[in-house]
Design a protein around this nucleic acid. Structure first.
Lengths: 206, 206
DNA sequence: CAATAAACATGATCTATGTCATGTTTGTGA
DNA sequence: TCACAAACATGACATAGATCATGTTTATTG
């Protein structure tokens, strides 16, 4: 039944697909992290989501009609993904209502997430959005560390900037302030959240 | 089979539900326009989406688990909606894979829309976002008018501001400029798009 | 291990947009 | 139709964050 599910491997600087490419597959992240990006002709980038193991992508309409990808997908380091041709995928959903409901629940969560992000971009300051991001990462991708919570995902200031809609310089300045205030320490290779409650307060401060 | 689908009516100043309320129903807009809003404790608002006839809401995870509404839903004038208790809704999806796939497609489109909006908020200027909004409304909710395309939906400058993440004053200023430049005319009760191509150019100008 | 490129840092501006204030016009309900 | 409340308008000013520039530190790779 699942022989249509094949595995593919990618590494840094590869593209899983680019914005505008035709959609062929439904994907599941098996290992590693995948970055979903939209960019402008002038080279500005906006990171929509970091997909982690278990995350689905192209599980939606785009995969169904003859549409093309609305953004690109890039691996952050080595990743392996499972994929299925969209025809097989939709046949599977047809035969398997429980799976379809799981996809509905997953998409619903993603939509809520996206709308929460919209609200943050529309109403919060840069430092609040960055604090939110760090809180999120700490809870989802953090492991215990003598000084707090270490992020398992390697993120540069530029990556963070693209995730919260600010420039790299601004991200650096705010991170420097967070460092000075003992909220975080370290840089991309070893970023430690030292004061999670402090960041939470900041994230929701009016 | 569909006797579980009941009709409800609301009008201006009602709430269909508020942020934080427990989810009880799955909804479909039958007539009128419904505004999805998130707001901050300080009273700032962000409009996520205007739902039109045919639009589904609470068709997702939130409706499934015991979760509460992540935003509120307010009618813009008189609306009628069809709704179904979430238990009946999920049973229906279980029995009817074609319906489940429709919901998946619908949610996928909503997610793409939301992500496009994220990109706009992160990378575009206020006037571009407002121009985009007007283009969108003109194509989706416009009817022919001697001077261009008239919007069938009554939107104040404040409504527009909340939809694109700017203040009311900024929306008024930009709309005044658009009026001066003969891109639009009129106000909430009779808003006419006079130069759709002009707005399109503006919307995607670097 | 040297060389080269990323990543991080920080200062000096500049500017889009927010904030506050005040006034006019338009709509609406008693 | 009068009164009251929204909606629209516009100026003055404040400021968060962008932009540009230059330098240091940290990684990466041949």
């Amino acid at each position: 039944m699942l022989q249509e599910l094949t595995e593919a491997h990618y590494s840094k600087h590869d593209y899983i697909f680019r914005e505008g490419d035709p959609t062929e597959y439904f994907h599941i992240v098996k290992e590693g992290t995948v970055k979903c990006v939209k960019s402008t002709p002038e080279g500005k980038e906006c990171t929509l989501k970091m997909l982690m193991p278990g995350d689905l992508f192209c599980c939606d309409a785009a995969a169904f009609d003859g549409a093309s990808h609305p953004g690109s997908a890039q691996p952050m380091g080595d990743v392996s993904i499972l994929r299925m041709r969209k025809k097989a995928y939709f046949e599977m959903l047809q035969r398997n209502p429980a799976a379809a409901i799981e996809v509905i629940k997953y998409l619903g969560n993603r939509l809520n997430e996206a709308q929460e992000k919209t609200k943050d971009l529309a109403l919060d300051r840069a430092d609040q959005r960055l604090a939110s991001l760090l809180v999120d990462l700490a809870t989802r991708n953090g492991i215990k560390d003598p000084n707090g919570i270490r992020l398992t995902i390697r993120l540069t200031r530029q990556d963070m900037a693209n995730m919260v809609g600010i420039t790299t310089e601004t991200a650096i300045r705010i991170m420097s302030r967070f460092k000075r205030d003992r909220l975080v320490s370290g840089t991309a290779n070893r970023l430690v959240i030292r004061d999670l409650p402090g960041l939470k307060t900041l994230a929701s401060a009016s």
